[in-house]
Amino acid sequence: MTETMISLHHTHNPKSNQCSSSMVKTVNAPLPLVWSILRRFDHPEGYKYFVRDCTMVVGSGGVGSVREVELVSGLPGRLSRERLDRSDDDMHVMIYTMIEGDQRLDNYQSTTTVHEDHGGGGGTVVIESYVVDVPEGNSEEETRLFVDTVLGFNLTSLANLTEKLAAAAKG
């Protein structure tokens, strides 16, 4: 099933001035809990490490909604406007595109899917992939390293939050 989801949702065809990558994170929390946090397009600061605040500009978090994300200081850029392109609660798929901002990630599109971990532990596998323009003056490797680092922090933060919530629910 995971291989099918990867081929359906995480296969990008970057143009010559773009790069792409993907990250996989296993989370020791049930899929419904992980998805309930991740799917909140209107509240990325709930788990994304580098997001200070989020304001909905269009919509309330459904497909077609646009959010303005304020980034923490220290990152290149302060703001990003992002549009939710797809959110599927049955398939656990979310796709969004950065449509403007000063963060140097032009034409950034992120795809995230959430899957049951079939290893027997009742956990969840989160896969996030992206495609993005390589900024002028940067290499593909530098761009990938930057984005992968941010994604790694975000996925670790998501795992820490949901694992704490799952442990608290168990009592």
Rank of each mutant, 00 (worst) to 15 (best):
G120Q: 06
Y96F: 12
V66L: 07
G62C: 08
R104N: 12
V93T: 04
Q103F: 14
H115V: 01
F41I: 08
H9C: 02
S139R: 12
D88G: 10
G137K: 10
A168T: 11
R52F: 14
V58G: 11
V125T: 09
V51W: 08
V57M: 11
G74E: 07
Y49M: 09
T112Q: 07
M5K: 04
L38Y: 05
R52M: 14
I6G: 02
D90R: 14
N107F: 11
G46N: 12
E163Y: 00
H9M: 00
D148S: 09
C19K: 02
H43T: 06
G61R: 05
G122P: 02
C19P: 01
K164M: 06
L145H: 13
A167S: 01
L105R: 15
N138H: 14
V134A: 05
S21Q: 03
N17R: 14
Q109N: 08
T113W: 03
R86M: 11
S20F: 02
L105W: 09
G121W: 01
T162R: 11
G74P: 02
N28C: 05
H9S: 03
L33W: 11
S65K: 10
A29Q: 12
R40T: 15
T124D: 04
Y108R: 09
Y108C: 04
G137M: 06
T113F: 05
V57P: 04
I127L: 00
C19M: 03
K170R: 14
P76D: 15
E163H: 02
T55R: 13
E128W: 02
S60F: 05
E128D: 02
G121H: 03
S60E: 09
G64F: 04
L79V: 15
M5H: 04
I99E: 15
L158V: 03
H10L: 00
D85M: 06
D85I: 03
T156E: 02
T113Q: 02
H43P: 00
H92G: 04
S65C: 04
S87H: 14
C19H: 05
F153A: 07
G152A: 06
